Simulated assay, not measured.
Amino acid sequence: MERKEVQGEWWLPENSDHKVPGTLVIDEDAIELTLLGSLRDHTASGIPVPGPDGETQGYDFTEESVRKGGVYPRIVGESGMQGYTLEDCFQIQRTNLFGGGLKGQVPGSGVALRSFSGG
């Protein structure tokens, strides 16, 4: 299979208003999505820690909560008139970049392509 690199926008089906730019690389050994940003708020996998007033003052993270926070049953995206669906994905790397951005690599076991027709 010839290596294919696709620049596009990516999101979770349950949060289609939050799109993250990234690059999908498909080659014979792997399918990998590198994102500039995060698909989920990092606190989504944390356990809220209440303050004295009952309001959340922070989050605790356990090994299990971090593991679950990096699992993505489905990621969808588009580039031009081509749509993509990645199934059974998990995060393998997360890097904090200057300015608060994130670079995450998310391999998937398969990718389905959808074409959009104009008009």
Rank of each mutant, 00 (worst) to 15 (best):
V6D: 01
V6T: 10
Q7C: 08
Q7I: 09
Q7R: 10
G8C: 10
G8H: 05
W11A: 15
L12P: 05
E14M: 09
S16M: 11
S16F: 11
S16R: 13
D17F: 11
D17L: 15
D17A: 12
P21H: 07
P21N: 14
G22D: 10
T23G: 09
T23W: 02
L24R: 04
V25T: 15
I26T: 01
I26K: 01
I26N: 06
D27G: 07
E28C: 08
D29A: 13
A30Y: 02
A30K: 12
I31Y: 04
E32P: 02
E32M: 15
L33M: 07
L33G: 03
T34I: 03
L35A: 03
L35C: 09
L36I: 04
L36W: 02
L36G: 02
L36S: 11
L36C: 12
G37A: 07
S38F: 01
L39T: 00
R40M: 10
H42M: 13
T43D: 00
T43P: 00
A44E: 15
G46A: 03
I47C: 07
P48D: 08
G51N: 12
D53N: 15
D53Y: 04
G54Q: 05
E55I: 00
T56S: 00
Y59P: 15
Y59K: 05
Y59A: 08
D60T: 02
D60W: 04
T62P: 00
E63D: 11
E64S: 12
V66F: 06
V66D: 05
V66M: 11
R67C: 03
R67M: 04
K68M: 08
G70I: 06
G70H: 06
G70V: 04
V71Y: 12
V71C: 05
Y72P: 09
Y72S: 11
P73N: 08
P73F: 04
I75E: 12
I75F: 07
V76F: 00
V76P: 01
V76G: 00
S79R: 02
S79Y: 03
S79D: 13
S79C: 04
G80Q: 07
G80V: 05
Q82F: 01
Q82A: 12
Y84D: 11
T85K: 04
T85D: 01
L86Y: 03
E87T: 14
D88E: 09
D88A: 14
D88R: 13
C89M: 05
F90K: 01
Q91C: 13
Q91K: 10
I92V: 14
Q93S: 15
R94I: 08
R94E: 09
R94N: 10
T95V: 04
N96W: 01
F98G: 11
G99V: 02
G101H: 11
L102F: 13
L102S: 07
G104I: 02
G104A: 13
Q105W: 03
Q105V: 06
V106I: 15
G108F: 05
G108N: 06
S109M: 10
A112Y: 08
A112Q: 14
L113Q: 09
S115A: 10
S115M: 10
